[in-house]
């Protein structure tokens, strides 16, 4: 899409674009290029000289059983977060969309968790599930169910999934509700007149019509689980116990920050970059197609 009537001049538009482009080049393109370049280099033990090693960082990475374990963790984590956050939000949105009394109030009461930082969500969950000072954690231990997410890897994974999903529900809720409200009521009425029961109406009419929203949220939630949940993991488990909750992004951080292995960390950055590019491409391809309908 283009405007027909425009202003004349070349200096002004370039001046207006300058701040954004300058930041983009200095802090986005240059570092991203560096990450790609470093991923082909290896530094010696003293960090003085680096040599070109081709794809060796990548082959090392994928030969490392710990890295494969990290990939597995990331898949379990992202799937868990996405499924729980989407299903809970859809259920709440469908109920809030019905013409019941106070549906507006429910909307307000369910929207605000959007504002909570992932790390703050994690701290809130500490006070629920900490084995000694948490409400639920203590109750579990008191009931004879041994609960300590700092020792048990599976419990730690469950904790970070739940805390991350909890924070994401309200975002999904907002979109599902907007999606539901844009479905023409006449379609549902027609089905009701034909005698279709509510559950049948939902699965045959509402859910298919909602699929663009669902698909969009699926990608957004995956991106969230991959990248924005760093704070949850750092605040709750620091990737532990025994790397049980170490995701791709956390591992890249640890290798760069703690182990100071720039080559290996850059190779991981490149892997993550490919993941984002793939997810964004899928999303835009899909939106493009929807426009053509």
């Amino acid at each position: 899409m283009e405007r027909k009537v425009v202003f004349r001049g070349k200096a002004l538009p370039l001046a207006l674009l300058a701040p954004q482009l300058l930041i983009t080049i200095v802090f986005f393109f240059w570092p991203a290029g560096q990450a790609v370049w470093f991923s082909f280099l290896r530094q010696d033990a003293f960090g003085i000289r680096s040599t070109f090693v081709g794809l060796e960082n990548f082959t090392d990475l994928f030969a490392d059983p710990l890295y494969l374990e990290t990939i597995r963790n990331t898949v379990v984590f992202s799937t868990g977060v996405t499924v729980i956050a989407l299903a809970t939000a859809l259920l709440l949105a469908v109920l809030a969309d019905r013409q019941i009394r106070g549906s507006g109030a429910y909307r307000t009461l369910l929207i605000w968790p959007y504002a909570i930082a992932p790390a703050v969500a994690a701290v809130l969950w500490i006070f629920l599930f900490h084995p000694q000072i948490g409400l639920v954690g203590r109750a579990l231990n008191g009931a004879g169910i041994p609960w300590d997410y700092k020792l048990n890897g599976n419990q730690a994974m469950l904790m970070v999934i739940l805390a991350s999903a909890w924070k994401q529900v309200s975002y999904n809720f907002i979109f599902f509700l907007a999606g539901l409200q844009s479905i023409p009521k006449s379609v549902l009425e027609a089905a009701a007149i034909d005698g279709a029961r509510p559950a049948y109406r939902f699965w045959t009419i509402t859910f298919p019509l909602l699929s663009p929203t669902t698909f969009f949220l699926l990608v957004v939630n995956l991106v969230y689980a991959f990248f924005d949940t760093f704070g949850v993991i750092d605040a709750l488990t620091k990737g532990g116990p025994a790397k049980a909750t170490e995701t791709l992004i956390y591992r890249a951080y640890v290798d760069g920050r703690v182990n100071l292995d720039i080559g290996l960390s850059s190779a991981q950055s490149v892997v993550l970059m490919l993941v984002v590019i793939a997810l964004t491409a899928i999303q835009f391809r899909f939106i493009e197609r929807r426009v053509h309908y």
Binding site: Q20, L21, T24, I25, F27, F28, F29, W30, P31, A32, Q34, A35, F38, V223, F227, F230, I249, A252, Y253, G256, R257, I262, S265, S266, S269, L272, M273, V276, I277, T280
Partner: peptide
């Protein structure tokens, strides 16, 4: 060039950006 930065969240270029 502005549009493409969508695909480069700070998390994937963190150490070079820090440098």
């Amino acid at each position: 060039s502005i549009f493409i930065t969508l695909m480069l969240p700070v998390e994937v270029r963190i150490f070079p950006t820090f440098k």
